[in-house]
Design a protein around this nucleic acid. Sequence first.
DNA 1: TAGGTCTAGATTGTCGACAATGATTCGAAT
DNA 2: ATTCGAATCATTGTCGACAATCTAGACCTA
Lengths: 219, 219
Amino acid sequence: MYDTQFKQAVTTSDKTFFQLRYDIVEGKVLSGSKLSETELSTKYSVSRAVIREAISRLESCRLVERKANVGARVVDLSPDGLVELYQIRESLEGMAARLAAKNMTSEEITELNQLLESHADKVKKEGSYYQEAGDVDFHYRIILGSKNKQLISLLVDGIYHLVRMYRVQLGMSGPRITTAFDEHKHIVNAIQNRDEELAEMLMRRHIMYSKNNIANKLA
Amino acid sequence: MYDTQFKQAVTTSDKTFFQLRYDIVEGKVLSGSKLSETELSTKYSVSRAVIREAISRLESCRLVERKANVGARVVDLSPDGLVELYQIRESLEGMAARLAAKNMTSEEITELNQLLESHADKVKKEGSYYQEAGDVDFHYRIILGSKNKQLISLLVDGIYHLVRMYRVQLGMSGPRITTAFDEHKHIVNAIQNRDEELAEMLMRRHIMYSKNNIANKLA
DNA sequence: TAGGTCTAGATTGTCGACAATGATTCGAAT
DNA sequence: ATTCGAATCATTGTCGACAATCTAGACCTA
């Protein structure tokens, strides 16, 4: 997933942006720490111009905050910030589920079902938990299924990296994860029945549960 | 409203960004037209660096689209784009209304009521229609009332400029405008009663109506 | 000692020049 | 005449240097 974006990088600004974003999300650069332009330019062996470009893009993802004539800092994670983020997710992904119920092709829906089945098999055979990667895969399909370009960009390019940052830095995969599978199944059923109303409602509840689960760790 | 932001501008990049955004939203720069960096740098009498910075920020507002090694173009407006935009508005502003019902102080609510009253008076006395400015004022109060910083930034810094661009370039203020007042009133009532569910639902319907109204003109 | 001011250092903002990539035009060959 | 290719031109991407601003610490004063 990250690989695909790295390949899309044509300019060194792109590469630096992707690399820096990765480092921030994965916690290689601590949240709250200052991003010195000169320092980064030596570290990544590029000019300050491309660093500035990268930071500018990171700002539009809300991964860093910038003040004029002062500099940029990595956003710091807080319980309040998490709640705010999940309120937005609830709203936007709920709409995405509604639109997916309307706009996904039947082929896409069967593929989505196959995805869930393969996850279920994997859980049974390997005895492993329903991993975060599976959850992300699922949500991405729904989002793309909405066919709303702006919505897709908002979530995929913007919010999801911040979501992942919270997940990584709180250490994810709790016991609840298994129950998420059933919720996913119900959402797909609603989409399959073209029940927009229900699809939205179930997705919103799914995200609310997820929020409560992750919020407990932070508190 | 634009003035307040212009005053916040500390660096010439800020000023150029605000100016350029204004020119695009107001249609001084045609939608779909190319933004040549050298051309703009001479036009605004600044270096290409600040133009690039401004364009980069415009890109994060989704007012321009950029391709590597090719350049930036002002987004072109389309019926599909409008529908997508209003789906997002419906989702996010619905959530904003829900949160406003939860988080607005009683002082803020009374101020909101006063705002509506003053608009009503103005309509009666001057015989004027319920103008767009009034509508925007109202929606801003709700959005700010959500107290969700990310949501506020998403709407105020991002989406609303694109909304305004559509409004301006389609020539706004239709006959429906008057009925919007009643819808606003009902939303405030729901907020006053702390009825989150209803506030969200009414706001979503209000925006759907608004979409249908504006979409008719485009088709 | 607390507070304020001024200087020195470091950091960000802005600029012009060069390098690299994409577009266009002209020419040649079939 | 048309299509393919090469050279030229224009535009964007990258760089290092200079200017403007903020920050930290010393020094002075009450």
